[in-house]
Design a protein around this nucleic acid. Structure first.
Length: 159
DNA sequence: GCCAACGTTGGC
DNA sequence: GCCAACGTTGGC
């Protein structure tokens, strides 16, 4: 049960999986995360109903492109057991899985993305420890506080 | 395409 | 347990 709703930001390269892909799929298992810190957030701290800012990385205009929500509790990422998958991990076993994921559900696309550039302009309000705008940050799943969530969504361009 | 920053791996 | 080498991320 989700006692207290939390917020997250999740990065994806749009050529791999975009907000449009999520809209088509409806619900999607967030597989392929192979970073322990990101895994720990999914495994231990995420719960059904949590809010997600869907971020496009490694693209022409990096930024937040949509809203999603956590649609399952965490469970072992099946791709770690699949020899034909690029995410296969020979050191993972069914008894002791290494990698966990959650399902995420499409909520909505932003009318226009909130560019990273714009987000950076609000570093003072967001706090310098906000992982997204810390130098050299490579975390693909990161916590967002309720205050940061509010600030970020207030940057959403109005129609 | 470049490259800085970072996480992981593996030799010792 | 240290740390150099390596691979990856991701903005530009």
């Amino acid at each position: 049960m989700n006692i207290r709703k939390r917020y997250w930001l999740m990065k994806s390269e749009p050529t791999v999986f975009s907000i449009d892909d999520l809209e088509r799929a409806g619900i999607e298992p967030w597989d392929g995360v192979r970073n322990y810190q990101a895994r720990n957030f999914m495994k231990r701290a995420m719960h059904t109903g949590d809010g997600i800012l869907f971020y496009h990385s490694n693209t022409q205009l990096p930024g937040i492109y949509g809203i999603a929500e956590v649609a399952s509790e965490s469970y072992p990422d099946p791709t770690q057991f699949n020899r034909t998958s690029t995410y296969f991990d020979g050191k993972a076993t069914h008894e002791e899985p290494r990698w966990y994921l959650v399902d995420i559900r499409f909520v909505r696309k932003l009318p226009q993305p909130i560019p990273l550039k714009t987000i950076r302009l609000h570093t003072d309000a967001l706090g310098e420890d906000f992982p997204l705008i810390r130098k050299g940050n490579r975390l693909s799943v990161m916590p967002v506080t309720a205050a940061q969530w509010k600030i970020l969504l207030s940057l959403e361009p109005s129609l």
